[in-house]
Design a protein around this nucleic acid. Sequence first.
DNA 1: CGGAATCCTATCGGATACTG
DNA 2: CAGTATCCGATAGGATTCCG
Lengths: 145, 145
Amino acid sequence: MGHQTESHACPWDSELVPDAGGRTRRPEPDCPVELALAAVSGRWTTLVLRELMGGQLSFGALSARLPDISPKVLTERLRTLEGRGLVVRERLAGFPVRTRYGLTAAGAALRPLLVELYRTGVELAQAGAAAETEQSTGRVRGPVA
Amino acid sequence: MGHQTESHACPWDSELVPDAGGRTRRPEPDCPVELALAAVSGRWTTLVLRELMGGQLSFGALSARLPDISPKVLTERLRTLEGRGLVVRERLAGFPVRTRYGLTAAGAALRPLLVELYRTGVELAQAGAAAETEQSTGRVRGPVA
DNA sequence: CGGAATCCTATCGGATACTG
DNA sequence: CAGTATCCGATAGGATTCCG
């Protein structure tokens, strides 16, 4: 295990809170963590992002890949992502109407976060399984820090 | 810029979706991404985790560091985190009652995710600022993928 | 000190049906 | 095809008050 700052004498952890933007005592919308979290939060959001990571898709193609999302919610997600500058909508003239959704540079920048989310999730699942084993073995779980 | 898989011919991106756990068409609670997201989502959650990253804290100490969180919500967050095996509560006998909250190994494992969230947030803010500049310059924003 | 209990509102997300 | 419109139940989260 790595070292750990035991006392709270030094006010901030420079890795966890690199600059003033993270030294907030409340959930400020412009705090970087909140900003990134807002980008990926909401039901279906990460799945929509995952699909778009592979390239542009039409509304129908997205519906087909995520069959259980209702058109209303899909539209909602896409509009939100568009509003945050993560997705662009391109309307192609003609009939029937064609639309293509794609990631902006900012949207594509979410990829490492999605990868890290996945990695962390796997780690949590392993930790959870390990904790259950400990419990059945009679061992005690204590705090780490 | 790095390379990008242009066509959707190959079904899954092996970096984004390393194994079967990520090949879900719906928001499954046991998908790694959902698991990690659930751990840090919810208002105040990341702030509580940040505070606990420095070491154990009492209920009152947490309240003092996050003055605008109501006792109800703080309790709620701590109970949820405890239920997920990320936080442990230690009750110390005596009067008045003392309690100490600390991270479990699983809870401490969230640190890289928080760092990545921060990093991504900064990147998004920069991208957003850049996009506004482009717009005022008259340039067009197009999809990247 | 460390919460629990209650109340209240806003928003979210699902179902369904309809339209240009 | 690509959405919009409406309705609705379930939480989330804040304020306030009280308890052991």
